[in-house]
Amino acid sequence: MLYHLGMLRRVLTVSFAGLLTLGLAGCRYAFVPAVPRPVEVTLTPRVTGASLIRSGSTLTVKARVDGRFEPAYLKVQWFDGSRALGEDSVYLDAAQPTATFTLEAPDQGAYRAVLSLGGVVLRQVELYEVQP
């Protein structure tokens, strides 16, 4: 009789384990949404169409800021090689996204103009008339 009870216990245990296995096989991940939420992307503004040209003894930088940006000052810092020559700024907003800067520079040089908006450097344009 004890033999039959032990055998019955094993059969029931195996059967119960089999039922549990079948129940677990039907589980699915429920925390992943069927349609994910749209991702909101905020692109930083960028300077496009920037150019540095010489006209006689005057250097001119023209730049346009594209993208969404808060109204701020577009600042230019002028360099000849590593020597700082000066700086200037223009207030830009969505209605006025372009700026023109000029610098008197009668001598040829290795000129660079670094453009920044709201303290973040966005672009550098160069005009090398001599070796830097």
Rank of each mutant, 00 (worst) to 15 (best):
V32K: 12
T13W: 11
R54K: 09
R46P: 03
P38Y: 09
Q108V: 14
R83G: 05
P106K: 08
D93F: 09
L117Q: 00
D107N: 15
G23R: 08
F69S: 08
L24E: 03
T48Y: 06
Y128E: 12
F16M: 11
T98D: 14
R112G: 12
C27Y: 06
A25S: 13
S57H: 11
L117H: 02
L8C: 10
G49E: 07
A94W: 06
A113M: 07
A94H: 04
R112M: 05
Y29V: 15
Q96R: 13
A25M: 13
E129Y: 13
V11S: 12
L43E: 14
Y3G: 10
L74I: 06
L8V: 08
A94S: 13
V61C: 08
A17E: 08
V125T: 13
V76W: 00
P38Q: 13
R10C: 05
E87V: 00
P71H: 02
F31S: 14
P106V: 08
L85I: 09
K62G: 10
A63G: 01
T48F: 02
W78K: 02
R54V: 03
A113F: 01
M7Y: 06
L59W: 01
L115M: 07
L20A: 13
V65Y: 04
D66S: 12
Q96G: 09
R10W: 02
A25H: 10
Y111W: 07
L85H: 01
A105E: 06
L74G: 07
L85S: 00
L122D: 00
G23L: 10
Q124A: 07
Q77S: 14
T102C: 04
T21E: 04
G119N: 00
T21S: 14
V120L: 07
R112I: 02
V39S: 02
L24G: 04
R64D: 02
P132N: 13
G81C: 02
T13Q: 13
Q77F: 02
A95H: 09
C27A: 12
P36N: 10
